[in-house]
Design a protein around this nucleic acid. Structure first.
Lengths: 210, 210
DNA sequence: TTGAAAATACCGCATACGGGCGATTGACCA
DNA sequence: TGGTCAATCGCCCGTATGCGGTATTTTCAA
């Protein structure tokens, strides 16, 4: 078999049964090569750096260093390796923290073996394999929430606040006095439970209010 | 055919040939129903609101109102309709502005007809169909850029700045004086070309520096 | 080894900001 | 018709911020 067409894989998964099944699946399938498998991040880090696999299948919940922390440490050192999270967790924090850490794929452990192999191929071809519902949650994360507790005027002011405009500038833009702008900002701070522009900007962006 | 299992579709596409091909494809395929098709947004808005299709295939580049603006206006009024962008443009602005507007899928016009039908089904089932490379660009958009012009210390200070901490608090956290923090912040402002905390926070988040 | 960049520290000053408190108008709703 | 709320305008006050400087030490690459 031509090594150039073989996708090399390392597995990090603490459940012995799943890890052995995955290892077996990848070892025995043409076009895939399982370089190694580990039950924790600590022991996996150095081999991943040394072996530079094409793809790492990474569990999130691991004893010691989590899969997410593991990727954070590895990302700079293995530029050509793609990470797929293979996990039972599909909560927002797990998904988005994985993506922020540098994962390119996110599939659940109950995925059919054939689909897992497909995901490995897809990520290796520059894609981002994930289940439909997770993809939807990611696309929806770009949409403003909108169901804001802020009034329309307050939203306008918050938008300008995030641009770094001061009281006077915001007031002139909307033909109201700087005093009124201040009152609006005070209300905004109170509603968002913040005490400064910096916090307000951060919260506005994080919660997609603007 | 059971109407409950038929996916109703409206197409908005200014290229006559493509629009007619798409319409024909959807009309003639079992399980799909093309309620209408339009060559511009202006004429499509009201029918989409009235007919509440399951899926809208929307071009981005349209004469008059763009597809993105169209979705922005429709999203609040058709809560159960999913939008798929069907476009030749795959630049970052087009992709992310579409997602921010409320698109759930993003496929290119040169996609095979069968894949387009698959995408319609997938979006209707709560997924987010898109090509592999676009999915990858979306997942990568969550990763910090890192190749920052800021020094390590400046990054730490910027991170705390984004949390709303003041000079003194930041200084105490890193065992340096508030004066030094101010100096770092001045350098940060200069490097980011901003003049206030609010702008710095926004830029830091937008450019994924933190 | 020499020079640039980073990190550290300090001063003065004008202004912006945030907290607290009060007040009027108009809309809308019960 | 009374009450609530958004939107508007106002004042006082203390502090944080941003901008202008200057200067020393450390670190690291040329």
């Amino acid at each position: 078999m031509d090594d150039q067409n073989v996708i090399s894989v390392i597995i990090v998964e603490d459940d012995n049964e799943i890890r052995q099944l995955m290892t077996f699946l990848i070892e025995k399938t043409n076009g895939f090569n399982c370089l190694a498998s580990f039950s924790d991040c600590e022991n996996a880090l150095q081999p991943i750096i040394d072996l530079q696999p094409d793809v790492v299948l990474m569990d999130i919940e691991l004893p010691g260093i989590s899969g997410i922390q593991g990727i954070l440490g590895l990302k700079e050192k293995v530029k050509n390796t793609d990470f797929i999270m293979l996990t039972i967790r599909d909560d927002d924090d797990s998904i988005f923290n994985s993506l922020k850490a540098g994962a390119s794929g996110y599939i659940l452990k109950d995925t059919a073996p054939a689909k897992i192999l497909e995901a490995i191929v897809e990520v290796n071809q520059g894609g981002s394999p994930m289940t439909g519902s997770i993809a939807r949650r990611i696309t929806e994360s770009f949409q403003p929430l909108g169901n804001s507790i802020l009034s329309e005027r307050e939203n306008e002011v918050l938008t300008d606040l995030c641009k770094g405009m001061n009281y006077r500038e915001i007031g002139e833009k909307h033909f109201i006095s700087g005093h009124t702008v201040r009152t609006h900002i005070k209300t905004i701070y109170s509603k968002l439970h913040v005490h400064s522009r910096a916090e307000a900007v951060r919260k506005a962006i994080d919660q997609r209010l603007i």
